[in-house]
């Protein structure tokens, strides 16, 4: 499906089903960027390692590993060690995100300055640089 989407929009972001099912079924080069969200737990790292392999096998563009809910340097290092050759972005554990989820609101509205929100936003702005975005809505597709 992602291969065939053809919107008149600059950017399509797909929140895939939990786990790797969709990634397994994606054809080669169907996306430009894979954001692989991982926690520093054995199970999460295992799933993510397989996800990273799939992304590489299928040439799914730029792979960004998001080390989520990082509580300390030990957590961050565990993720970096598991993905030594990949770009790893650390997003801190942030009670503001938990609180936003509890209330069913967007973290970006409830806590725009929360450290986790800022870390994810900074990563997103970096993607715009990659896409050659010039601020006029003319990002490459």
């Amino acid at each position: 499906m992602l291969s065939s989407v053809n919107f008149t929009h600059d950017t399509v972001i797909a929140d895939l089903e939990a786990g790797l099912g969709t990634l397994t079924r994606l054809g080669n080069a169907q996306v430009d960027v894979v954001l692989l969200v991982v926690e520093a737990t054995t199970k999460s790292l295992e799933v993510a390692a397989r996800g990273a392999d799939l992304a590489r096998e299928k040439s799914l563009g730029r792979l960004i590993v998001i080390a989520n809910r990082v509580r300390d340097e030990v957590d961050a290092d565990a993720v970096r060690k598991a993905f030594p050759d990949d770009e790893v972005i650390a997003v801190p554990h942030d009670p503001a995100i938990v609180e936003a989820d509890r209330h069913g609101v967007a973290a970006l509205d409830a806590a725009p300055d929360a450290p986790a929100v800022r870390a994810i936003s900074a990563m997103a702005r970096n993607l715009l640089v990659m896409a050659g975005h010039n601020g006029s809505g003319a990002a490459s597709v």
Binding site: L2, V5, D10, T11, V12, I13, A14, D15, L16, A18, G19, L20, T22, L23, L26, Q30, V31, D32, V33, V34, L35, L36, V37, V38, E39, K43, S44, V47, A48, G51, A55, L60, I66, N68, L127, A131, A139, S140, V141
Partner: peptide
């Protein structure tokens, strides 16, 4: 640009 967000539940 097409992005896919992937991860364990």
């Amino acid at each position: 640009m097409k992005l896919a967000v992937v991860g364990k539940g």
